[in-house]
Simulated assay, not measured.
Amino acid sequence: MSKVRKTNDGYLMLLDAVYFRGLRLGNISEEGIEWAGEDAQTLELWAAQNRTSPVKEVETRAATNEVTGKMIECVAQNLKTLLGGKVDGERWDAPATTMIQEGELKILTGTGSTIDIHRSALRTSQLRGGLGGENTLGVNFGFKMLAPLDGGSPFSIYPTAPFIESDTERLQFPAAGGAQMVDIEASGRFAVGAVPDGFSVEIINGRVTIVAEANTSAAERTGEIEFVLEEDTSKKIVVSLTQSAA
C-alpha cells in the first residue's frame, strides 16, 4: 500500500491502488498502468507571400489523456465494477450489453503521491488473455479523461495524506444472516478492531466482507466494527451493524 511521505520529491513511480467511483479495481497486472492519449491536432495557416513557413498555427483539438491497464483479480465484485453485470455471492453474470461509465478516478502511487482525475469515462473494458502456462485472463480497461462539468481543473497531483474512508457507515442483516461488502479507500494498511459476537470479517487484498451468522434469538443483534489506519491511528472509521431478531 501507499507510503505516505512528509516531503514530496516529485517522482511518480510504482502502483499501490486504483479506485473508480470509490471502488478499488483489484490487482493490476505487473506491467502496471499506462498514461497515454492522443497528441493535439493543429491547423497551419499559410500566406501566399511566405512559402517557407506557416504564418500561424491554430490548435483544432487539444491533446487527450487516457489511463489503460489490465485488472487480473477476477472476483465477482471487481468484474462488476469494470464490466457491469450482476453479482450473486461469488457468482458474476456478464451484462447483456456493454456500457460507458463515468466517475472520478483515483491513483495511489508507491512513492507517496495521489493522482485524482476528477471526471473520467470507462469507455473500454473487455475480458482478454489466455489460460495455460503463465497466461491469465483479465479485464483490459481504458479511462478517458473528460472535462469537468463545473469547468474546473481536469486532474490533480499531490502528496498522499493519511486517509481512510468507506462507502457506508451502517449495515443491516436479516435474521438468516449473510455477507455484505464494505468498500474502503485507504492510503495504507488498516487494522480491524474487535468484532462483535455473531459477526466475522474477511479481508482479501483490501476488500472487506462482513459476515453475519444466523440470529436464532428473539432479540435484535447489534454491534460495530472499527477500521484503523495503521500509519496514523487517529484516522479511523466505524461501521455499525444491525441484525433482525428471529
Rank of each mutant, 00 (worst) to 15 (best):
G85P: 08
P95Q: 07
K56R: 15
K56A: 15
I100W: 08
P54M: 05
R61T: 04
A48C: 00
L105E: 04
L82Q: 10
A62Y: 02
T124R: 14
N78V: 03
M99G: 11
I72G: 07
K70L: 13
T109N: 07
Q77W: 03
G112W: 02
K80C: 04
W35V: 14
I72A: 05
L79H: 04
V67A: 12
G84K: 14
N65I: 06
K86P: 02
G69R: 07
W46N: 08
D116R: 13
S125F: 02
W92E: 05
G110E: 01
A121D: 01
G110D: 05
K56I: 10
L108E: 04
I117S: 01
E66H: 09
S120K: 04
E30I: 03
T97A: 12
A121N: 10
S53A: 10
T68N: 08
D116P: 00
I107C: 12
W35S: 14
L82H: 13
G112L: 06
K70W: 07
V58S: 07
D39L: 05
V58T: 13
L82M: 15
T68I: 07
T109W: 03
L105C: 11
R123Y: 14
M99D: 15
W92N: 02
D39Y: 03
N27T: 13
L82V: 11
G26K: 09
L82K: 13
H118L: 14
K86L: 06
L83S: 07
K80M: 13
L43Y: 05
Q77P: 00
C74W: 01
S113N: 14
I115S: 00
M71P: 03
R123F: 11
I100G: 05
I100A: 12
Q101R: 14
T42I: 03
P95N: 14
G37V: 02
E34R: 13
N78E: 01
G89I: 04
Q41L: 08
G110N: 08
D116I: 12
I100R: 11
L108A: 05
A40F: 03
K80Y: 04
Q77R: 11
G89S: 11
D39V: 12
A63V: 00
P54R: 02
Q101G: 08
V75C: 02
K106H: 10
L43R: 13
N27I: 06
E90Q: 13
M71K: 11
S53Q: 08
E73S: 06
R123D: 09
P95S: 12
T81C: 08
E34I: 14
K56F: 12
A94Y: 12
E59A: 05
L82S: 08
D116Y: 08
Q126L: 10
A62N: 09
M99H: 15
A48I: 02
V87F: 02
E66G: 03
E66A: 09
K70V: 00
Q77I: 00
V58I: 15
I28R: 07
T64N: 00
E59K: 15
T42P: 02
D88I: 02
R119W: 04
L122T: 08
V58F: 13
G85L: 10
E30A: 15
A94S: 15
G112N: 03
T111F: 14
R61L: 07
Q49P: 02
